[in-house]
Write a protein that binds this DNA or RNA. Structure first.
Length: 579
RNA sequence: GCCCACGUAGCUCAGUAGGUAGAGCACAUUCUUGGUAAGAAUGAGGUCAUGGGUUCGAAUCCCAUCGUGGGCUCCA
């Protein structure tokens, strides 16, 4: 079999799918049908919504087309001809009209189907394998992604060179479902959301909250070590604050309606920065006290459109691990490098070592002097290069108020999640009149950098759950050890063991129910508790526990003290993979 | 917000000619005291998302609302 790129395979499959749809709905209007990272799709304008049965029928027709081995035939046509050929296809006409005048217009035919297409394609439909594609789902999609334009029906599918590769892909989709944080959040009793109490608002259950407090404590410790101070600020602020910051002008659609207190309008905060600036401005500042690094686990509320809410990953109330670094121009390179290192180390400790960066530069419309932008950009770029972080440049992708680096981390399944952002702000220091006195005795405008490393604790927790599939490293597992007495007569010794583990600082639970040992182990396994400690006659006699790991590994009996020593060592080292 | 689908016990789900709801798991009680992933019996538990409508009668049909899920410029 000849070798085609996935792109060719997928794009060809999308044509074959369109052909099938045309046979099913002769009146269908066709929009676009590109190959994408995970497969392909095609957008159609159809007389009625597609059903799952339609997908089956489309699949069947596609198989027919593949078996018929229709050759793909390329033709180049003049613009006028193209306009005539697609006279009854309004979307195609729009595409043709938007093509630059010098562009060669090509069409591809196979069987009875013809499509405007740049190509390339496989040589005939038989180059696709009938058993290696799958239509996955349908969805609504706006023509050209514009919500003011018609909603089309999109069919997603995928195809691979071989059946096995398709199977691997579908297995991976299943694995993603198994790891879904919403599912694990329920199964492991970590968190919940309540429609009746407000969508997009997270309730942390005892076990989820336990993980959170451990990570927060760790975060605070690291921040103090890293030269940060930690702040607490209010949740609401008078409209003056948001007018001054500019949020009411630029961000009001993300903010909740004001509440009136006395005669004044107050807004719940969508960001922490104005509050930190208020603290900065409580005093005259000298260059001698800079840099200031002020961090806060600040809970903010932002309006997100109902259609985009998704478990912990997209919510309306969340806690940012926010910080603002206020420094002099001379300090920014060191500070940026420091933040980047700090962030990479934090990610490493949490078990994420795969990081890529996106550097966003000055957009057309921007505030702040160009020299400042330049200096900021240089510091960002330099830091990435010193730390050897692979990065892509998003030219003009910065916010109007400053350039930034976003870090995306890859999880255990290789998915990228945008978490960290390190962002200059040339807007708010200006608006709030932030100044410091330099060595020259003059007032200067400091640089201010916003940064959130984990991003939001809610979203981070969602990613964390999926990354570890709920099997958290022992150092932040909500329950580290489960004591399992075999029979009631072992409970007394088990109680002792429980108390000793607890005294050693371990988070331990005991299952003294009347379940059989096997059932207790099963429960421990399902709860993904790192250590299960079985206690029967032999252990009670020898002051030992029989250690079973959640990896199904059975370490056998060891003295209680030996287990404690082992566990404490692994936990205090914050090892992410060894149990 | 928009399109489509969905919303039945804590969870996963069954319940199509519309005739006053069912399973498994979980939970409770009792029996069982068992060596590395489910011992057994009994029991409790639902105004079938909410509000309207059609009907003698609605979980089942229609409408609205709320919520959930898959998506919504990887450009011929």
């Amino acid at each position: 079999m000849s070798t085609y790129s996935l792109e060719e395979l997928r794009h060809s499959a999308s044509h074959v799918m369109a052909e099938a749809v045309q046979r099913l709905f002769p009146e269908a209007k066709f929009a676009i049908g590109p190959a994408i990272e995970s497969g392909f799709y095609y957008d159609f304008d159809l007389p009625r919504p597609l059903t799952p049965e339609d997908l089956e029928e489309i699949s069947r027709l596609m198989q027919e087309s593949i078996k018929a081995r229709h050759p793909f035939i390329r033709e180049e046509v003049l613009r006028q001809e193209a306009l005539q050929m697609f006279a009854d296809q309004p979307y195609k006409l729009e595409l043709i009209r938007d093509l630059p005048p010098e562009e060669t217009i090509s069409i591809y035919r196979h069987g009875d189907f013809m499509d405007l297409c740049r190509g390339p394609h496989v040589s005939n439909t038989g180059d696709l394998r009938w058993d290696s594609f799958a239509l996955l789902n349908t969805a609504g999609a706006y023509w050209r992604g514009d919500e003011k334009r018609p909603m089309l029906q999109r069919v997603y599918g995928t195809i691979f060179p071989s059946k096995q590769e398709l199977k691997d892909y579908l297995d991976r989709l299943e694995e993603i479902q198994r790891r879904d944080h919403r599912r694990l959040g329920r199964e492991l009793d970590l968190f919940s959301l309540h429609e009746e109490a407000g969508p997009g608002l997270v309730y942390w259950h005892p076990k989820g909250a336990r993980v959170r407090t451990i990570i927060e404590d760790f975060w605070r410790m690291r921040h103090y070590e890293g030269g940060y101070d930690i702040l607490y600020t209010p949740h609401i602020g008078r409209s003056w604050l948001w007018e001054t910051s500019g949020h009411l002008d630029f961000y009001s659609e993300g903010m909740y309606a004001p509440m009136q207190i006395d005669e004044e309008q107050y807004y719940i905060k969508p960001m922490n920065c104005p509050f930190h600036i208020m603290i900065y401005n409580t005093d005259v500042r000298s260059y001698r006290e800079l840099p200031l690094r002020w961090a806060e686990l600040g809970t903010v509320y932002r309006y997100e459109r109902s259609g985009v809410l998704h478990g912990l990953l997209r919510v309306r109330g969340f806690t940012q691990d926010d910080a603002h670094i206020i420094c002099t121009p001379e300090q920014i390179e060191d500070e940026i490098l420091g933040v980047l290192r700090f962030s990479l180390r934090l990610w490493h400790d949490l078990g994420f070592d795969n990081v890529v960066a996106y550097l966003a530069t000055r957009p057309e419309k921007a505030v702040g002097e160009p020299e400042r932008w330049e200096q900021a950009l240089v510091s960002l770029r330099k830091a990435l290069e010193i730390e050897n972080v692979p990065y892509e440049v998003d030219e003009g992708g910065g916010a109007f108020y400053g350039p930034k680096i976003d870090l995306k981390i890859k999880d255990a399944l290789g998915r990228e999640w945008q978490m960290t952002t390190i962002q200059f702000d040339f807007n708010e220091p200006e608006r709030f009149g932030m100044v410091y006195t330099g060595p020259d005795g003059q007032e200067h405008r400091p640089y201010m950098v916003h940064r959130a490393l984990l991003g939001s604790l809610e979203r981070f927790f969602g990613v964390l759950i999926e990354h570890y599939a709920g099997a958290f490293p022992a150092w932040f597992a909500p329950v580290q050890a489960l004591v399992i007495p075999i029979a009631d007569r072992h409970i007394e010794f088990a109680d002792q063991v429980f108390a000793r583990l607890k005294a050693a600082g371990l988070r331990v639970e005991m299952d003294s129910s009347s379940d059989r040992m096997n059932a207790k182990i099963r429960k421990g396994q399902l709860a993904k508790i790192p250590y299960m400690l079985v206690i029967g006659d032999r252990e009670a006699e020898s002051d030992s526990v029989s250690v079973r790991l959640r990896t199904n590994e059975n370490l056998g009996a060891m003295p209680v003290e030996a287990f404690i020593a082992r566990a404490v060592e692994i936990i205090t080292a914050r090892e992410n993979y060894r149990l």
